[in-house]
Every structure is written in C-alpha cells, then in structure tokens.
Design a protein around this nucleic acid. Structure first.
Lengths: 153, 153
DNA sequence: CCTTGACCTTCCCATGATGGGAAGCCCCAT
DNA sequence: ATGGGGCTTCCCATCATGGGAAGGTCAAGG
C-alpha cells in the first residue's frame, strides 16, 4: 500500500504522515525497491490511532506517550487514565480562559448602542482598561510552556 | 521615550512592537538621530489598546479594523459592536469544540479502571473509533481559515 | 576623557501542525 | 512508448512569539 492509500484509509494527509515519520512520532516506513513508502494494515491502524488522539486534543508529545502505552502490553491502565485526565484539565483551563474572554466581550457588547453614532463603550474599554502589570509577560515557565498553545478548532 | 519604556508602559514586548511595526499594524515609529525608535504617550496608548484587544482574543487582522475604528471619529458604533459579536461567536465555537473533546474524554476516563492491569477502554476507543470519512480533511475554506487558530491561554 | 554596562539596532532562527509548490523519478494503462 | 497521476525530496509560508548574535549608542562614574 502506497502513502496515498494509507492516507485515505487513516484520515491523515500524506504530508503529515511524512512529517510524523520525520519527527520520530512513527517509525521509518518500509520502502519499495524504487523508494516508495510501503504501508501495511497495522500502519494504517496506528495512523488512525494518532488521528483520533489528535482529534481529542492531545498534543504530539502526549500522543508519543499514548503510542508507547498502546504498544506496551505490560502497561498500567492507570497511566493511560492519568494522561487523559491531564488532557481534560488542560481543556478545562482553555475553556475557562475563552469563557472569560467571551463574558467580558458580552458585557461590553450589551453596553454598546450599536447605532450610527461613534460613541462606543467597547472602544472606550479597550482604550482605558489597564493591563495587569504584575508580570503578565514575565513568562517564568519558559517559551511555549503555557502561552501560545494551539487548539484545533 | 525608547522602545524599552514603551514596552514596560504598554505591556507589549519590544520584540512585538517591532513586529507590529514591520507588519503594518502600527505606523513606522519616529526615530532619533542615531536610529533609536522614539515613542510618545499616544503611542503607548495605542500599544495598550492593542494589548487589551489581543487579550480579549482578537486576531491581528481584526485589531487592524479596531484600530481604524478607534482612530475614525466618524465611525458607527454598530461596526464596533459587530466586530465584537463576531469575536464572541468565534469564541463560542471554540468553546463548544473544546467542550466536546473534554466530554468525550470524561466519558472514557470514567470507563477506565485506572489500576495495574493493562486493559483500558481509552486505548480501545482511540484504536477503533473511526474517523469521520465525510471530508473532515476537505478543508474547503482554505488553509488557516478555521483550523489552526491560536488561543492565548 | 574614557570605560563600562545597559540599551538599542538589524538579521537570522525556532516554535507546532499544517499546506503549497517545484523538480524530478516511477508505475500502470492505453 | 507515452501520458498522466502518484511518489520522492526540498524549500517556503503560516501566526505570534521569543532567542540570540553582531554591532552601534548612550549615560554614569572614575
């Protein structure tokens, strides 16, 4: 099976399959004599596992761990559960953050006439609301620790 | 005022101030004879507006629009309100998506014993749940339209 | 007046997950 | 055998952000 077939069967684009291979998430694919990547059903199975994990919000780093547990028949289900619970925690944090932003905007929107006049409490708030000076940008956890996380909306 | 002062007063890093200038979000800064960027209070004001907008989840493209409205005293508050409402809609979509993921994980976590045994319904689900074949990857809206949006958690 | 250190400048690189596209090779069906 | 579609690698772009190097500038203190 060529990469195109594996892609269609797994729901992972060929580009991403190569990327996952390159970054070590999945092992190097077998190759035909002419250099084409060659996939078996087990590989498609693994790719599907990855696609599903990603759809549930797991970052690549945790999918690595999930794959290890998946392949390890001596695993403890407690370890899998812990990973899933950590993911839920993270999702809840993100949800709370988005909810806070939406609530603030909702309040502002309700206070705005929304007519032909230029006067607007939304702009006024953006203009005057002070930023939290207490180290919002101090970034003690290092780059890409908590800020700048990606969601797959 | 040098860029470091403007950064400290606005809460926008010097790196980002230069980036915003380079990408046209803000006008080219005034320069001293020796080439240092020179900022006035009004510039800090603008940077604060940007920081606040970004904290409320507005992408740079919409902050451009907000800045235009802010500067335009002939604006209609309805236009500002519409922008904020669109942002709320987007946030609600993201929240729903994250909520769905969290709910699925919650169900799985509840079904997992979480003990020393390897048997785990979470892994089983990841392994067998089919991906929605009906064009989940069809991406009609083009790259970066809805997927891969960034949140500032 | 000169040194020192903090600040500024530009330039390049990296992130994470993803797609676009070019140049060139391969394989199958007509 | 030829054409078209699929495969290969390689480079580039995204978005907002930081890291770091190499070098210029400025103010304070000796």
């Amino acid at each position: 099976m060529n990469i195109g077939d594996a892609s269609a069967l797994s729901g992972v684009s060929a580009k991403m399959i190569r990327y996952y291979e390159q970054t070590g998430l999945i092992p190097l694919a077998a190759r035909t004599a002419s250099g084409y990547r060659n996939y078996a059903d087990a590989d498609v199975h693994m790719l599907r596992f990855i696609a599903r994990s990603r759809d549930l919000g797991f970052p690549i780093s945790e999918i690595t761990d999930l794959l290890d547990l998946w392949r390890n028949t001596d695993r403890r289900s407690a370890d899998v559960k812990a990973l899933a619970q950590a993911r839920i925690q993270d999702l809840r944090h993100k949800i709370t953050h988005l909810q806070d932003m939406a609530d603030t905007l909702e309040t502002l929107v309700r206070s705005c006439a929304g007519d032909e006049r230029p006067d607007c409490p939304i702009l006024h708030n953006l203009e005057t609301e002070a930023f939290p000076a207490s180290g919002r940008r101090s970034n003690h956890a290092g780059p890409h620790a908590n800020i700048n996380e990606r969601i797959t909306s």
